[in-house]
Design a binder for these strands. Structure first.
Length: 449
DNA sequence: TCTGGGGTCCTAGGACCC
DNA sequence: TCTGGGGTCCTAGGACCC
């Protein structure tokens, strides 16, 4: 296949695993591809997965749809305008999960060091192939054909010295839309060390990992548009403008350096559920109910993964697109709908509204394995260490109620929506207050004026 | 043209502890 | 008189990624 000089893979060049130990593997148009596989009548039609409503966004677009300029992250109303015949599907994430697991397993058959990024991408460290004397480009081609034969989905694979170049290479390996036509990709692209500098110099800073619209804009104001420009700025300057971590990362990437390891088995750090409403919320009771509903979804997810969360957070986005949040860390982990819902609805009630609410979300973090959390609570609350269900429950309830009282105090009663003071929605649970002088917040009553 | 839902990471200030 | 220094935890906000 014809390729622009300097950007073609160099399959004929020998590359040992030591020269190019990192793969970035990325499935093409993943969600849309799964939908087309499951419904052959969609073959050849422009297909997208995403929200169909006025506030929807495209999550994935088939190449047929991309011919019309449809892209992921594009507002659905825009996509429809560009492509009136666009088939928009809501998405079936359980199904994508199945495909994703199979995809991961195929890569895991090659190397155990696999780091997923979302459902359709992984980094893989293939250093372990050294013993087998396999050239990485050859291994990548075999991997690609296995993915294609077992999943019926194409993948692009970047092969390089580090994550930075592997990711840039996989992007170049993809099919491209040129003049309304889809040009097949090369599938596997290897960046040789000799090509690295040339690649970087051609790139806009926006192509670098971690450089989004805001950072690109700020760099532009410093006269930095390309990575070539960026390479001329010293690190201390970058740190002073962008902070320690970002400044360092920018300086490193501009030189083609990237020491990040491929990390397998990264545990999730938070679980959340959020929703953008077709019609923004204004009613206090409705808002509290939604906080509880999302809290219950989070609770189910926690229980499903045998985890408890100590931190409950809420996020609101208003009609002006501004967003704000509140979070509260409890002295013990929770995984039940009621506890999460109580804290979430109380948190939401403390937020001063800047208008109608278009998005409401509930999150859980500071996660730990569920086992033993009840016992731990019993100790923390000054118990004997003997776990007794009713007592444990009552003590948790008491701490939870105190926590909610603390929120009122911190943010002022007036900030609390009318939905909170009353009992009927079950927010306040009848517990004799003052009969427990233990636990964090347990003596907060005495501080109340 | 108007911006989803799942997440991760970073920063900064205050509280608190030694 | 003026008044530490570092570490950790918590919270709010923001940018970014897929």
């Amino acid at each position: 296949m014809a390729s622009p000089s300097g950007t073609s893979p160099s399959p004929s060049e020998p590359a040992s695993v030591d020269e190019a130990p990192i793969f970035h593997v990325d499935l093409d148009a993943f969600f849309a591809s799964v939908e087309i596989l499951d419904d052959p009548t969609l073959v050849g039609r422009p297909v997208a997965v995403g929200g169909a409503g006025d506030r929807g966004v495209i999550a994935s677009a088939s190449y047929e749809a991309r011919r019309y300029g449809v892209r992921s992250a594009m507002a659905t109303v825009v996509a429809r305008r560009r492509c009136p015949g666009l088939v928009i599907l809501p998405g079936r994430f359980d199904r994508y999960d199945e495909y994703s697991r199979r995809f991961h397993q195929i890569v895991l058959d090659l190397t155990p060091v696999v780091e997923p990024l979302g459902l359709d991408e992984v980094f893989a460290d293939v250093s372990s192939l050294r013993r087998l004397d396999v050239r990485p480009v050859v291994a990548a081609r075999e991997l690609r054909s296995r993915i294609r034969s077992e999943l019926s989905i194409d993948a692009g694979i970047g092969v390089a010295r580090n994550k930075l170049f592997a990711k840039l290479a996989s992007k170049r390996s993809k099919p491209q839309v040129v003049d309304g036509r889809v040009r097949p990709g090369e599938g596997v692209v290897y960046v040789s060390p000799e090509l690295e500098r040339q690649w970087l110099d051609e790139l806009p800073v926006r192509a670098l990992w971690g450089v989004g619209p805001a950072t690109a804009e700020r760099l532009g104001r410093l006269g930095v548009v390309s990575v070539r420009d960026l390479a001329r700025v010293d690190e201390s300057t970058l740190r002073s403008h962008f902070g320690r971590a970002m400044g360092h990362a920018l300086a490193e990437m501009a030189q083609g350096r990237d020491e990040r390891a491929v990390e397998a088995d990264r545990a999730a750090k938070s679980i959340g559920s959020e929703e953008t409403y077709a019609v923004s919320l204004t009613d206090d009771e409705h808002i509290a109910r939604e906080a509880r509903r999302h809290g219950a979804i989070v609770g189910r997810a926690l229980r499903g993964s045998d985890q408890v969360a100590r931190t409950v957070s809420v996020t609101l986005r208003f009609d002006d697109m501004s967003a704000t949040g509140r979070s509260q860390t409890l002295p013990f982990g929770v995984d039940d709908d009621e506890a999460i819902g109580d804290v979430a609805s109380a948190l939401v009630a403390t937020i001063e509204r800047r208008g109608a609410i278009r998005l409401l979300g509930v999150g859980a973090s500071t996660l730990s394995a569920r086992e033993g959390s009840q016992l731990q609570l019993s100790f923390e609350l000054g118990g004997t260490g003997v776990v007794e269900d009713s007592r444990g429950h009552q003590a948790r309830r008491a701490v939870l109620n105190d926590t909610i009282d603390d929120l009122r105090r911190r943010f002022g009663r007036s900030a609390i929506g009318s939905g909170l003071d009353l009992g009927p929605d079950g927010l306040r649970v009848s517990t004799q207050r003052g009969d427990h002088a233990f636990g964090p917040g347990g003596d907060s009553d005495t501080q109340r004026p």
